[in-house]
Design a protein around this nucleic acid. Sequence first.
DNA 1: CGGGAAACATACTACTGAGTATGACGTTGT
DNA 2: ACAACGTCATACTCAGTAGTATGTTTCCCG
Lengths: 225, 225
Amino acid sequence: MFPVNVELSPHSISGNIGLAELKEAGNARDAIVEAAAKCFMHSGYSETSIDDVADDLGATKGRIYHYYRSKAELFFDVHRHGMAINLNAIEPIARGEGSPYDRLQSMCKAHLANMLEHIVYQRVVLQGVEMHLSSSTTPKQREKLKLLMKEREFYEGLFRDVLLEGRQNNTFSFENPSFASKAVLAILNNPVLWYTPRKTQSVQEKNQVIEEFSAFAMQSVNAKQ
Amino acid sequence: MFPVNVELSPHSISGNIGLAELKEAGNARDAIVEAAAKCFMHSGYSETSIDDVADDLGATKGRIYHYYRSKAELFFDVHRHGMAINLNAIEPIARGEGSPYDRLQSMCKAHLANMLEHIVYQRVVLQGVEMHLSSSTTPKQREKLKLLMKEREFYEGLFRDVLLEGRQNNTFSFENPSFASKAVLAILNNPVLWYTPRKTQSVQEKNQVIEEFSAFAMQSVNAKQ
DNA sequence: CGGGAAACATACTACTGAGTATGACGTTGT
DNA sequence: ACAACGTCATACTCAGTAGTATGTTTCCCG
């Protein structure tokens, strides 16, 4: 991650260093997404104004509307960002080698690690679920929201598949696979609702949360090695 | 328990407020609360206007502002309503007779039954949590929000106490009691995010959800009879 | 029966905030 | 050197909505 906090000061001196970096990776958008994530996490979607995000950037509306057509699109992009983080971490594990037990455990721990590390994005993802429940926004944007939920369901499917595979070995036991994956993710997502990173002992704390909540998740489906 | 007591409203004595409120306090407020709950669930807090609630009532703003000083207070009342439903159902069980195992299981099933039955209110309660994360509203109303969270924590404490009691017998096993109660409630609350009541087989469906998710919750803390 | 208070409806105000139109500034290509 | 484009800032518009001020009806109580 790049904590690039571009101070304003539109002097374009220094030849190309700053600008080159900005342009190359499309970092202008990324900076916006990051600021938006921070604001959305802090104040929620509706309570966050575009001006708030702009302030956080040290810029104005113009900058944001130059890259995003609407507030909703910005939110969607933040959401996608968060989901991408999760998918990149979990999908390789889910499709990798190892027993269902080992894989599920790895997935749980990786997911929890993501929650605690990228909590800013993850809370936005949760807000996406809230938004889904609400009958939100315009008719056309509901399509995009549907797509985000598809992603989410795909992600849940990764867990469901491992669970199903493990049920064959009697590694796990449950009735409804869909319910089981929902229960597991409910536990794994819970920490984002209350966890706030502290400077001191941050690592210890995190490990404790990861260990315990992955244990809860595994036990909830009656995992046996 | 400490039923928080909101100062406006011409009634509301200091004692226990449970069902008495429903009867005595007149249907006017209750009708408003119910309509508000419906709207808040459907569109979320910020997306719901007072006029929306009024429309649902077949009335106008005047009616609502006659009983509630602000939109936030209305929300708080809906939240309290939801919490009261839960407390009335669970507290007797938590403080009642029986083994920790039996009590926790009863609590889980009762909580789930409440979720599915009063889903309108329960989703609003969840929004309350979201609001808590956000730095919301005016400085004075944050106090009330704090009180709601106190209620919520009290509720969580009921689960925590039973869990602690059961850990002594090796009925349950976990490290951090606070984490354990959060994990259990995370599972129990999950169905409100996706459950939508259907007319047909509604009873069958509900029972299935209740049975499975209470099982997940019990297993998550390694419950053994 | 009349006066007053509760229970609303109606008609405002005031303000926030999303989205736009346009201009300013720099960069790049030729 | 100039034209064209990308990248923003500034200054607007305008719709939605929380809250208020005031009128109107109904009901109760002496």
